[in-house]
Nucleic acid binder design. Structure first.
Lengths: 335, 335
DNA sequence: GGCGGGAACGTGACCGTTACCGTTAACACG
DNA sequence: CGTGTTAACGGTAACGGTCACGTTCCCGCC
C-alpha cells in the first residue's frame, strides 16, 4: 500500500525512529543521514500517515468548521480564506454543514469532535451553548464565528454587528429617509445586534420606529430571498409606507427589492434599500444593491490565526475579534 | 481527557474488546452486556476516536473534496449536498480549495491523501493527470467532479456539457438569433464540451461561426465577471455585431451583460444572453438571466453515493455519471 | 588510562481501536 | 460420561507513528 517509515528505514538500513527524526527535523541526527532519508522519501513519494501521527501526538492537525449553510456566500468565502491560512501550517479542514438545523448541528459537532480536531470553528444556529455540546469535558478549544453567544466568555471572531446596524441606518438617514424599516434576521446575536444599532441611530435622530416597521424572522432556516420578499409585502401594506429599508442580509434585500419593484415603486426614489454582506452579485442586480461589507476574507484569516494560536496555547484567555464593517453605496440608495 | 473504551471497560469490569464489540454491534456478545455498555457510553458521553479506529481499520471514514473555488456557487452547493449524503453514513469531508492553482492543487492532494481519505472527489484545475498525483501507487479511489479528463478511464460525475452547449445554442437559435457568439471557458473538458455542443448546433442550423465570435479564456483562474466583461468588449467591437451570446457560466454572463448595457444595447432586443449554472441570483439581476441548470444538488448526491460505493467495492469498473442539463428561460433571452 | 561529555542512533512503551484466534462454560446428544 | 457445538468473552498483536530514555562510539582532557 502506501509507503511507511518502516519501508524507508529498511531501505536505508536505519531504524524507524531515525527516519522519523529526519522527517520531523529533530536535532539529534546527522545532516548526512537526514539528507539520505529525505531523498529516499522523495523517491518513494512518502507521505506521513496523519492518522498515526495524530494518534501518537494527540493532535490531528485538523480544524473543524461547522457552518449553517455553505451556499451562503459569507460562509463560502469564510471557508475559502480559512483554508488559505491553514494550508500554510499543514492544517486541514474538517467541514460540516448544519443546514441551520440544531439537531443536525449537534450531530455534526459529535462527528467533528470524534475526529479529534485540534480546534473547532463554529457558526452555530443555536441560541445558546446550553448543555449542547458535550463539549465541556472536551479540551478542544473552540471559536464562535459570526454569531456570538451573549454573556459567554468564549472566543469569537465576527463583525461588529451593532455597527452594521448603525452604519446602515445612518446611511439611510443621510440619504434623506424618514420612515426607515428593518427586515430583521433571527434573534441570534447578529440579528439582535443589527437591530439594536439600527434602533439606536433612529432614536438619536428623533425618528420613530413603529412596531410594524420591524419585520421579525424567527425561523432561522429562512433568511433568503423569499423571507425578504414576504417581509416587504407586509411593509408595502402599511399606511405611512417606509421610504427606506435596511435588510438583515443581501439575499433578503434582493427579495425585498423584487417585491417593491413588482409593486411599481421606483428605487431609490420611492424607497431605498441597503443590505448586508456585500455579496458578489450585489453590483450586478437589476438595481445594484447598497450593502454593508463585512470583509469576510479577513474574518477567515483572523479566525484561522486565532485557531492556530489557541492550539499552541490552550489556555489563553478568550479573545473577541470584531472587524469593522463598511458602507458600500450603490444605486439602491444613492441620492 | 476524552473517554476511551478502556474507561468504559474498567467501569463495567469487562475487557476493552467486549466494549468495542458492543459499540460496533458485533454478534458474539450478549444483549445484556451490550445494553450495559451502550448505557455507560451514553452517560460518559463517549465518542470513538476516529484516528485510532482509522488506523486500526485502515479506513478513515473521511472523504476528500478538492475544489477550485468554494466561492463559486456550483462548488458550494455541491459540497453542501455531498455533506448531506455522507453525514448519514457517518462519513466526513476533508475540504481543500485549490484556488484554480495547479501548484496549490498538488499540495492539497498530498494533504488529502496523507489523511488517508477513503475516497477523493476532485474538480481539478489541471488539464491532465500526467504524473500529477503520486496517486498511482495509492489505492485511493477517486472521482472526477464536473471536469473530466479526456481519454481517462476514471470515475466521473458531472453535467453533460456537450448538451449544455447544444441547449444554449438551440435556445438562442429558436429565439431568432443568427449571429451567436460564445464567451468560452478554459479548454478543460467542460469548456471544450460546451464549445463543441455550441459549434455543432450552429453548423446544423447553417449558421456561421467566425473565429472572432469565440472568445477564449485560457487563464483558468479568471472565469468571473471581469472575464465576461472583457470578452464582451471584444465582441462589441466586431462589425456584424452578435445578436446572441452564450457564456460559459453565469458570472461571465453577468459581466458580459454589464458591458452590453453600458454600450447602450437593449437586452434582449438587440442582443440576447444565456449563461450556465443557474446561480441563485440569476433571476434577480438587472436583467434576469437565462441559464442552463446543472441540478448541482443532485450532482452532489450522485457523487457522494458513488464514493460510498467505491469504498465498499474498490475495484468496481470506472463509471461516468452525466446529468442532463435544462434550459431556464428568463428575460435576457425571452422573445 | 580512566573519565566526562556530546553526537548519533536505537529500544521499548504507548496512542485508542480493531482483527484474529483462543479460552471457557454450558448444554445437547448418543 | 465423553464428545461436539455454540455463545460469550478475552489475550495478543497489529495499525504507523512519536516520545522518553538508553546505548554506543568517539573525542578530549587531566
Amino acid at each position: 500500500m502506501a509507503v511507511r517509515l518502516k519501508d524507508i528505514a529498511r531501505d536505508l538500513g536505519i531504524s524507524v525512529i531515525t527516519a522519523s527524526k529526519a522527517l520531523r527535523g529533530a536535532k539529534d541526527i546527522s545532516e548526512d543521514t537526514r539528507q539520505r532519508v529525505l531523498k529516499r522519501m522523495q523517491e518513494l513519494n512518502y507521505r506521513p500517515n496523519m492518522m498515526a501521527r495524530g494518534l501518537a501526538k494527540g493532535r490531528s492537525f485538523l480544524v473543524g468548521l461547522v457552518v449553517p449553510d455553505l451556499l451562503h456566500p459569507f460562509f463560502a468565502e469564510f471557508a475559502k480564506s480559512l483554508n488559505g491560512v491553514l494550508r500554510q501550517q499543514n492544517y486541514g479542514i474538517f467541514l460540516a454543514s448544519s443546514e441551520e438545523d440544531p439537531e443536525i448541528e449537534r450531530q455534526e459537532i459529535r462527528q467533528v469532535l470524534a475526529r479529534g480536531v485540534d480546534a473547532l470553528l463554529i457558526a452555530s444556529c443555536q441560541q445558546t451553548l446550553e448543555g449542547f455540546y458535550g463539549m465541556e469535558d472536551q479540551r478542544t478549544p473552540f471559536i464562535l464565528v459570526d454569531r456570538d453567544f451573549p454573556h459567554l466568555r468564549a472566543n469569537f471572531v465576527g463583525t461588529d454587528d451593532v455597527m452594521v446596524g448603525r452604519l446602515a441606518a445612518t446611511h439611510l438617514v443621510e440619504a434623506g429617509r424618514k420612515r426607515i424599516a428593518h427586515i430583521a434576521g433571527p434573534e441570534l446575536s447578529t440579528g439582535a445586534d443589527r437591530l439594536f444599532g439600527y434602533r439606536d441611530v433612529m432614536r438619536r435622530n428623533g425618528l420613530d420606529v413603529p412596531e410594524s416597521y420591524v419585520i421579525h424572522n424567527s425561523k432561522v432556516e429562512e433568511l433568503g430571498e423569499a423571507a425578504g420578499y414576504q417581509g416587504m409585502q407586509k411593509l408595502l401594506a402599511l399606511d405611512p409606507r417606509p421610504d427606506g429599508v435596511f435588510c438583515y442580509n443581501d439575499l433578503m434585500a434582493i427579495g425585498a427589492m423584487h417585491a417593491a419593484l413588482e409593486a411599481g415603486l421606483a428605487i431609490p426614489q420611492d424607497i431605498a434599500f441597503i443590505g448586508c454582506g456585500n455579496v458578489r452579485y450585489s453590483e450586478y442586480l437589476r438595481i445594484p444593491l447598497s450593502s454593508i461589507d463585512q470583509s469576510t476574507a479577513r474574518l477567515g484569516e483572523q479566525a484561522g490565526m486565532l485557531a492556530l494560536e489557541l492550539i499552541q496555547n490552550r489556555d489563553a484567555a478568550p479573545s473577541k475579534k470584531l472587524l469593522e464593517p463598511a458602507v458600500i453605496v450603490r444605486a439602491s440608495s444613492r441620492v
